[in-house]
């Protein structure tokens, strides 16, 4: 299928590559279909392009690139919402927000995304029992001058 995207212009999307987020993303509950796109231009970041609204694209990162031991736990209701067996291996991505000064970019570790490419499913978790922040810097604070 062809999308007319803001970021990439016309974009051909393989139906098999579409990931369904049954609950959407928080604040974007109506957006339930996404594609995860690798792009050498922005590696190690990746694009999470909405299929339902081609104007909307997020940037995500594999948290292990920056936060080695970050491993979110899924609760029973997360698996239920995903509708996949609990043994399924999942890819983890966190949303990255880039403000005007890119050195100040942050990752949302409290609300990570888990994705099963095998089942074409995804979900944004809310790690209520954790101390993870909504805005975690990716780069160290600049040293004081």
């Amino acid at each position: 299928m062809k999308l007319e995207t803001r970021q990439f212009g016309p974009l051909e999307v393989e139906p098999a590559s579409i990931l369904t987020f049954p609950s959407g993303l928080l604040g974007f509950e109506e957006l339930t279909r996404f594609v995860l796109l690798e792009d050498a231009e922005i590696a190690p970041l990746e694009w999470l392009q909405s299929v339902d609204n081609p104007q909307i694209v997020f940037t995500v990162i594999d948290p292990t690139v920056v936060f080695g031991n970050y491993q979110p736990d899924l609760k029973e209701d997360d698996w239920e919402a995903l509708g996949i067996p609990e043994s399924t291996s999942l890819k983890v991505r966190v949303l990255v927000t880039v403000p005007k000064d890119p050195a100040e970019m942050t990752a949302n570790l409290l609300g990570p995304l888990v994705i099963s490419t095998e089942h074409g499913k995804g979900r944004q978790l809310v790690l209520t029992d954790s101390e993870y922040p909504v805005r975690q810097r990716l780069l160290p604070e600049p040293a004081a001058v």
């Binding site: 974007f28 231009e41 922005i42 590696a43 190690p44 970041l45 909307i56 694209v57 997020f58 940037t59 949303l95 990255v96 927000t97 880039v98 403000p99 005007k100 890119p102 970019m105 949302n108």
Partner: peptide
Amino acid sequence: AASQASPEAAA
């Protein structure tokens, strides 16, 4: 996150 500047410099 959805309404941010282009991420090339961040990358």
